[in-house]
Design a protein around this nucleic acid. Sequence first.
DNA 1: GTTCGATACCTAGGATGCCTAGGTAATGCA
DNA 2: TGCATTACCTAGGCATCCTAGGTATCGAAC
Lengths: 107, 107
Amino acid sequence: MQTDRLKGNLELLLLSALTMGPAHGYGLIRRLREMSEGFFDLPEGTVYPALHRLEREGLVSSSWTDEPGRPRKSYRLTPVGERQLAVERVAWQRFGTAVGAVMRGTS
Amino acid sequence: MQTDRLKGNLELLLLSALTMGPAHGYGLIRRLREMSEGFFDLPEGTVYPALHRLEREGLVSSSWTDEPGRPRKSYRLTPVGERQLAVERVAWQRFGTAVGAVMRGTS
DNA sequence: GTTCGATACCTAGGATGCCTAGGTAATGCA
DNA sequence: TGCATTACCTAGGCATCCTAGGTATCGAAC
């Protein structure tokens, strides 16, 4: 069955990571890995499409850095994204509370 | 984007609910609703296929009650299911810890 | 000087897993 | 007789994450 709990939480993770400041995709992968002490080691094929989705929805905005060297696409939170992050945080907590109640067998 | 956090946690929820004793599908839906104070109100189309999956994997076993009235298929945890539940619990907690670390911006 | 690992971007298609929407049938009450 | 509730089921849809492939730059090692 191979549970993937990530489903539905990726958005929360990416938006959270961006509150520490703008970052590009590859850097976000590293940032999430560090912040979670290695727990989240997301493949690029997961993160890049997710960022594009977030941008399409207006939660993040991107800009190419015109520094020399490797091209980098920097993402930052938009005001809409910040509001959405607050919503996600509450939703996550509620979900966790409900799961906890079921696990503990109490209502 | 419509996060569905249930994905990957349904197994944990069903196995947890079954620790309170055997139950049939419809009853499990009610039990989860009560234990979570209304948070989890799972559609039948979610629960029945999941129970079949759990049975195929040997985590639960089923038996039709030969009581009169409506036919009911009662599910109970198998020993394998109990072990798997313990695994799931730890996995859930680890996941929660990791998400919490990212949300709080600390490593 | 070239080979390799790390950095940095991308996408098509597959797998998974929950949900929608449909179906059947028994019970009990209005 | 009709309707709500209980109780079971499944096909197909859809969203989302991942696999696996691709391109290209840079620095270090050989």
